[in-house]
Amino acid sequence: MLKGALCFLTTLLIASSLNAQIRIIDAQGEHLFEKPPTKVVALNWAMAEQLIELDAPLLAVSDVAGYQEWVVQPALPEGIQDLGARAEPNLEKMARLQPDLIIVSGITKEQVARLKNIAPVLNFNTFNSDHNNPQVAIDTFRQLALLFNKSQLAEQKLSAMQQRFTELRSALTTAYQGKLPKVSTVRFANTASVYIYGDNSMSQYALKQLGIKPALDIATTQWGLVQKRVLELSKIQTGSVLYFEPFNEYPQLQASRLWQAMPIVRNNKVAAVPATWTYGGAMSLKYLAEAMATSLLTLAPNATEQNPVKNASNEAVQ
């Protein structure tokens, strides 16, 4: 029985490879490609990031300056073309570049129809409240790899990422002597309000891979975060908080007595994470995990003496 099924599957695979067609499924359904596209534009940073990681032939992306400032990793290839703001990528410039594929996410059917006049369009689901955002990012990564005939590279990168998770996890476990803390990640809006990342966020997924549970329960939302008062963080008694930079008002926040009185601050359980994009693709999970693990190591019990971050916050408390 099993053998029969396997046999059937193999035949199917051979049949499809004989057709030499690549089957890709996006939000709109199934798309067939004869060969991997060679001139691709991405209208969204997460998609651009996925393509760069796959060494795909990326020609142009929306808001190059914004990408370099907010996404940072992986770096955009030299000479990439700028298509203007993300909300309104320039169609005329796009058409002049004569791409053979446009990759987007979360746009309306009408917008897809218009882009199809320029080139075939793949519209992926990325951030949505009714699915698991990080898992979808990984699935999309595999789909794109299939399209560009880079499946091997993709699997290699994914397993390297798993490998990295394991390394980071064991480094953290050693540093925390086997007792990993609960951690929540946040982005400050100002000194009084904060966006807290929850279950459906890339950062919380990356932490989960490191064996870390969230310190706060946050409802599942489309982008994986909710806006709360900074006071909300006082509910964390034993866990830690990582905040993403840039946050220029941090000195002011540190100087406020309410902040100083919070359990996380009194116990020195707050650390900064250098600017990392929290709405990215599969590989952004790795960058997130690395950046967050580095920050968490500075909070580890045995890192007290050598840790400048911690000393700084100690001074602020006094």
Partner: peptide, 25 residues
């Protein structure tokens, strides 16, 4: 704001008028 939306995002709370305080600063 439209051209630099990432930066402007955090400022909307101020634009909406917020009285929350953390200290007497």
């Amino acid at each position: 704001i439209i051209l630099r939306d990432q930066y402007a995002k955090n400022l909307f709370i101020w634009g909406a008028g917020d009285l929350a305080q953390n200290d007497w600063q």
